[in-house]
């Protein structure tokens, strides 16, 4: 379980997170939505331990990760998987090398075992024949899928998705959504997804939270959020110019 308690973060005096409180149960898939620049990626970076909060705590299975040293934090990170916005594939490695990388570095599996798992992972994301290509030779959607395979190959208990479908066409977006759904069913991870694809992405999650003004203004099931009377949520989902959200 992930529990975020009263999380605050400022950059150069500008408050980005202003007391975020959120509870994510095991095996939940939660969408965190919010306007661009509202601090969604900052929130995810806190969960990975890439940023340290000014105040507040983040409990992962009861352990406050904001108080851990690098070594202890790495033990928590070993159970996390992160799909970064741009994929964050290593340019110098092939697709195969990228997907195999976590296994080569973090496990003692034999070359054959790694090969079998990488081939299976690439097959899961529909890129079995792409192993020898370099990231620069792939399209945006392919990069995301390779990054997806790399994230899931170590079978993490928690997967964080930072805008997994940004910049992709509707067909590829659907295929990524399907992929998240299928892999969640297969591996049973806890998923935290940052996305703007609302309400489309609601079909793959069981919880939604809206981040606005540095706090979670509302959270609930997709149905509850869709029927919410909160004007911020209504405006965000409808995409209207008029409302409390200022641009």
């Amino acid at each position: 379980m992930i529990e975020i308690i009263d999380l605050h973060k400022s950059f150069n005096g500008q408050k980005v997170l202003n007391g975020v409180n959120l509870k994510i149960e095991d095996k939940d898939v939660i969408i965190i939505m919010g306007t661009s620049g509202c601090g969604k990626s900052v929130l995810i970076k806190h969960i990975i331990g890439l940023l340290t909060p000014d105040k507040g705590s983040i409990l992962i299975n009861g352990v406050d990760i904001t108080t851990l040293d690098t070594k202890e934090l790495d033990k928590i990170r070993e159970r996390l998987g992160v799909l970064f916005q741009g994929g964050a594939l290593f340019d110098s490695l092939t697709v195969y090398g990228n997907v195999a990388f976590p296994l080569r570095e973090k496990t003692k599996l034999s070359k054959m075992e790694i090969r079998d798992r990488v081939i299976q992972a690439l097959e899961d994301v529909g890129l079995k024949e792409m192993g020898k290509k370099f990231p620069a030779e792939l399209s945006g959607g392919m990069k995301k899928r390779v990054a997806f395979a790399r994230t899931l190959i170590s079978e993490p208990a928690i997967v964080l998705f930072d805008e997994p479908t940004t910049g992709l066409d509707p067909v590829i977006t659907s295929s990524i959504h399907e992929l998240i759904k299928a892999t969640h069913e297969k591996y049973g991870y806890t998923g935290v997804i940052i996305s703007h694809e609302v309400p489309r992405i609601f079909e793959i999650c069981n919880k939604v939270a809206m981040l606005h003004g540095g706090i979670i203004v509302e959270s609930g099931t997709p149905e509850e959020i869709m029927n919410s009377m909160n004007p911020i949520i209504s405006q965000f989902i409808s995409g209207s110019h008029e409302g409390p959200i200022e641009y």
Binding site: K45, I48, G49, L50, D74, K75, R77, E78, L80, V82, F84, Q85, G86, A88, L89, F90, D91, F101, P102, E105, K106
Partner: peptide, 11 residues
């Protein structure tokens, strides 16, 4: 391109 963050996230 967050490749350094990716390394850190992989512990």
């Amino acid at each position: 391109t967050e490749q350094i963050d990716a390394l850190t996230a992989m512990a």
